[in-house]
Simulated assay, not measured.
Amino acid sequence: MKVGVHVGGPPSSEVARFAGWAEEVGFDVVTTTEVDHDPFLPLALAAQATSRVRLATGIAVAFARTPMAMAYVTNDLQALSGGRFVLGLGTQTKPHITRRFSMEWGKPVTRMREYITALRAIWNDWNKGEEVRHVGEYYRHTLMTATFRPAPHGHDNPPIHLAAVGPAMTRLAGEVADGLIPHGFSTERYFREVTLPALEEGLERGGRDRSEVSVHCPGFAHVYAPEGSVDEQRRMLRGRVAFYGSTPAYRGVLALHGWEELHERLHALSVRPEADRWDRMADLVDDEVLDTFCTSGTLPEVAAELRRRFGGLVDQVHLHPPAGTPEAEIRAAVATLHDSDLPAEEPALPAGER
């Protein structure tokens, strides 16, 4: 099992320092995400400070950019990193694409399939000499002249890991992507009973083997910060579960556990105007629900529980050790997860806590 760690914040010398440290203590992947900063610039700094770790977006928003715009920045990162870049792609939601990025929305699964096809066609033009001729419903790329064609960088195309919530996007990942990134709002049961079967259907459609797709660990993992109150940190996690649980798109995860009523109550509160609605929503997430969605505890406890829940099922997991965590403890946790390529153990927790 590969172990990744997230680097946040704006591009700075601290990003390079952190990436170099992560590589030295044994992490396999350094990731960024597209929230309040560009996800690509920090990886350019990380590439220059490392030589072994993979550098990944987890995720970048696909539909905020055309395939051509995405191709240029990712091709440069693949060259700069010596072939270590991984492109994690996600769709975001319609309001963000249309109202925040001012881009067009379409059928997300159909559009993502075409996006990936177009992206690979562009990369192949630049690095394999295959002239780009992509004509689809959403994207047309039929012009590439020598002035605008980067020189071949000598590496394979970056792997594309696809974020998925529902079965349809998960099937697409199995069919055409190099990796699957399940949404954080997931549970061990949902992963086993919904996500993995959908992935297998996609693999079968694409005539592919499970070994061809790198599967990331689902769910929320939180290591308690030693200087903070555990109750306060669990309160923060309750709020996170409540936020996602209020979204109709994620209702199916709660429904699988028989918690449809919880979704209805969360959603009803989320659309009310009261300023305290988010606190009231967090109050609805009890310990059973929280511990089903979240793996939380000390770093050794989180590493051991992730291994127990998902060992033998996933290929990559992410840890987020809080500041001040002893380096020896981090190394030990990474080693524990590296040794997780074993048949998954039978769940030891009661059904409601998985």
Rank of each mutant, 00 (worst) to 15 (best):
W126F: 14
R54N: 10
D28M: 10
T31H: 08
Q92F: 10
H153I: 02
H37S: 11
L80D: 07
R133S: 09
I122A: 02
G82F: 10
W123H: 13
T145D: 08
F101L: 11
T142V: 13
L89Y: 02
R65F: 12
D28Y: 05
L41C: 01
T91E: 15
D38P: 06
T32I: 08
N124Q: 06
M144K: 09
V35H: 14
D38M: 08
H37K: 09
M112K: 05
V132D: 07
I116R: 05
E130C: 10
F63L: 08
H141K: 02
R140I: 01
Q78S: 07
Y72K: 07
L45N: 00
I160D: 04
R111F: 07
H37V: 13
G82H: 12
G154H: 10
Y139H: 04
T93C: 11
T142P: 00
V109E: 02
L89T: 05
G26V: 03
A62F: 00
M68L: 15
R140N: 00
L80W: 02
A46N: 05
T33W: 13
Q92Y: 03
H96R: 13
M144I: 07
T57M: 15
H37Y: 15
T145M: 02
A56L: 15
D36I: 12
E137K: 10
R52A: 11
A118L: 02
V73A: 04
G90N: 04
D125K: 06
A60D: 00
Y139P: 03
K94H: 01
F40T: 03
D38V: 07
Q92V: 09
M68F: 14
T33L: 15
P67S: 00
V29Q: 01
R52M: 05
P159A: 10
V86G: 09
L45H: 03
T74M: 05
